[in-house]
Design a protein around this nucleic acid. Structure first.
Length: 618
RNA sequence: GCGGGUAUAGCUCAAUUGGAUAGAGCAUCGGUCUACGAAACCGAAGGUUCCAGGUUCGAAUCCUGGUACCCGCGCCA
């Protein structure tokens, strides 16, 4: 695809400006500057212009000219007369660019299509996103919340840019922990057909507590200055561990051998767990189901081949009975097989990377996992590259990226707990959010003039759910992911400020405005952008495709949040300053309705990329 | 001890990746509705960008050295 066509269909004049300045730079300074970045930026202050070229300062330095003089030369060489007003040099050598209104209107027209100007990628390779990561026999907790909604949003953004995305729920459904629960439940004679997730979760904890003691580990932890958390954890696990572990080990062996009774019971545990997971995913409006499950059990036959390969290629060595992979730039190696011959989660992650890059041919593997696992992923990625899995079979370099996110904290700035001190389940958190959202929507529906007044309880409930869940999601996605944040439902659900509900509200207002306007064939209306507020709004809209592409690249959803807030903000200002249905004449009414329609679609589409619903009334 | 992360307005956070006067939202103060949805808008006030050096036309951003808090550190996942 040519750049010219991309300019046309994204609507953003920035690419055209960029090309014009590249040409001007070559014309002024010579062919050797053909690759120089013209540094075209959006201008922060509208009084200065719409775009600016920042290239003159840096280039002047290189060629020994006065920056302002070079800027002036560029202005004389650049061909932008058709798109922009006469250019001006400012400050140390900035070039300010103000577009003609017709240019902006043309741009809006170009993005007025179902894709809203977003280019479809022609890369047919899939992208794998590892998200959610629930464990069989455990309740979902708030840690899963972040992985799931961040991963889902990134998947939606990448899909929006035309890529095929494989969402992979790397279930913890295999290995010693599961064997422990199985053993525990069978020893207790629990009726697995009547098993609830709460009981299962309790059995899991009991199993862990009784079997995880590790005297050597504790010794090592002290010797290696491990953190207090780790030491306390290990100390609590001392007694009776060996017998419990031996029993679980036997269970695991039988399960691995395919003992029919055990396999049947194992499947029951998975069913009980996943039923709750699917309910949560459904409430969260996350696009995942059984098809996305590819857990540790899937890789159980692929672990030994990984070890064999590392050994045959001399990529690992034995150390104190264990098998480790070394790295050039750091001391600590990665353990891929235990002294007792058992595998670790690094082994399973390596098998998964091999599968994802070599079998499915993904050229991007994204892991949406807690920031505390940074070191682990650095190790695993480096080991995978040493194993030559850093390229797809057809030769493309694989981008392996860990998207680390911070913790959700309680009001005491410590990991979120319930009032009684137990871990907060995701289910209870979602229930609270939906409850609060519904309350807020219902409260406003009591007003006889509210557009929601005539809705029944079911409809109010659906909107309330969208608002409550949207509030949580927006709060989670709107900050830099690596930061911890304090969970504060009052602030998230607030209908004022930089929140999900604020964006949903802006969207809903436009929906009713368009409904009242009741105009057909709006895409034939000619756009008039005389008022400063509507001009400003239009400029913001033109950036949509650029922002989506940026998020697809940076994997930082908060940039999309910030942008959508800017859209809603610009719309509100426009709406205050410019009458739409009461504009002077019919053509202006239609022009403004068309502008509103574009805002509605950008907001709706953008919220959709965040996994947030946009009701037409609220 | 080693490694990583974070530090910006009273509070919660941005800052187009080195660009112009560091921006939003809460909270505070002052204005806008017999309503194109006030869940909104307009305005005011609020800053030694943790500290000290350095790099350059230009630094919240890059480099060096510190401080504070959080996290991680082989046979758990």
């Amino acid at each position: 695809m040519s750049t010219a066509s991309s300019t046309q269909s994204s609507g953003n004049p920035r690419t055209a400006i960029s090309q014009a300045f590249s040409k001007a730079i070559v014309a002024t300074l010579g062919e050797e500057f053909a690759s120089a970045d013209p540094l075209i930026r959006n201008t922060a202050n509208p009084e200065l212009g719409d775009f600016q070229c920042n290239a003159a300062m840096g280039l002047a330095k290189r060629v020994g000219q006065v920056p302002r003089d070079l800027a002036q030369s560029l202005i004389e060489a650049v061909e932008l007369d058709e798109l922009a007003e006469p250019l001006e040099v400012a400050g140390p050598g900035f070039i300010n660019i103000r577009l003609k209104s017709a240019t902006i209107a043309d741009g809006l027209g170009s993005m007025d299509n179902p894709q809203l100007g977003i280019q479809a990628s022609d890369d047919a390779r899939p992208i794998v996103i590892d998200l959610c990561g629930v464990n069989v026999a455990k309740q979902m907790h708030v840690g899963h919340l972040r992985s799931t909604i961040i991963g889902d949003s990134l998947a939606r953004v990448l899909e929006r840019t035309g890529r095929t995305v494989l969402r992979e729920n790397h279930l913890g459904d295999w290995g010693l922990p599961i064997a422990m629960v199985l053993f525990q439940l069978r020893a207790n004679g629990t009726d697995l057909d009547a098993l609830t997730l709460t009981e299962l979760d309790a059995a899991y904890r009991a199993g862990q507590a009784s079997a995880k003691g590790d005297a050597r580990g504790l010794e090592a932890a002290h010797a290696r200055h491990s953190g207090p958390h780790r030491i306390a954890e290990l100390e609590a696990q001392q007694s009776g561990a060996d017998e419990a572990r031996a029993a679980a080990g036997e269970t695991l062996v039988k399960l691995q051998q395919g003992d029919p009774e055990l396999v049947r019971d194992w499947n029951k545990l998975i069913d009980v767990t996943m039923q709750a997971v699917y309910e949560a995913l459904d409430l969260l409006n996350v696009e995942m189901g059984p098809d996305n499950n590819r857990g540790e059990s899937f890789y159980r036959d692929k672990l030994q081949p990984v070890i064999d390969y590392f050994e045959s290629e001399s990529l690992c060595r034995e150390d104190d009975g264990a098998l480790v992979v070394d790295f050039k730039d750091r001391k600590r190696p990665l353990l891929i097989r235990k002294r007792d011959g058992g595998f670790l989660y690094a082994t399973s992650d390596l098998a998964a990377i091999k599968h994802r890059t070599q079998e499915t041919g993904a050229d991007r593997c994204i892991y949406v996992v807690d920031a505390r696992q940074r070191d682990h992923f650095r190790d695993v990625f480096d080991a995978a590259r040493q194993a030559s899995w850093g390229n797809t079979p057809d030769g493309a370099e694989v981008d392996m990226v860990h998207v680390p996110f911070g913790s959700i904290l309680g009001p005491d700035k410590k990991p979120l707990k319930t009032r009684s001190g137990t871990n907060l389940t995701l289910a209870s958190l979602l229930a609270e959010a939906i409850d609060r959202g519904t309350q807020e929507v219902a409260k406003r529906a009591e007003n006889p003039s509210a557009p929601t007044h005539d809705l029944d309880e079911t409809a109010i409930g659906a909107i309330g759910r969208a608002v409550g869940i949207g509030a949580i999601k927006y709060a989670d996605l709107s900050n830099d992911l690596v930061r911890d944040y304090v969970f504060d439902m009052d602030r998230m659900i607030a209908f004022e400020g930089d929140t999900g509900p604020y964006l949903q509200y802006a969207h809903a207002r436009i929906c009713s405005l368009l409904e009242k306007g009741n105009q057909a064939d709006l895409d034939s209306a000619s756009l008039q952008l005389a008022a400063p507020a509507e001009r400003q709004l239009a400029l913001v809209l033109l950036r949509y495709a650029e922002v989506v592409a940026d998020v697809a690249d940076s994997l930082e959803p908060h940039r999309l949040c910030g942008y959508l807030h800017e859209v809603a903000d610009s719309f509100s200002s426009f709406y205050q300053a410019c009458p739409v249905l009461k504009a002077e004449d019919e053509s202006l009414i239609r022009s403004r309705l068309r502008l509103c329609d574009l805002v509605r679609r950008v907001l709706g589409d953008g919220l959709g990329l965040l996994g947030i619903e946009a009701p037409s009334r609220m």
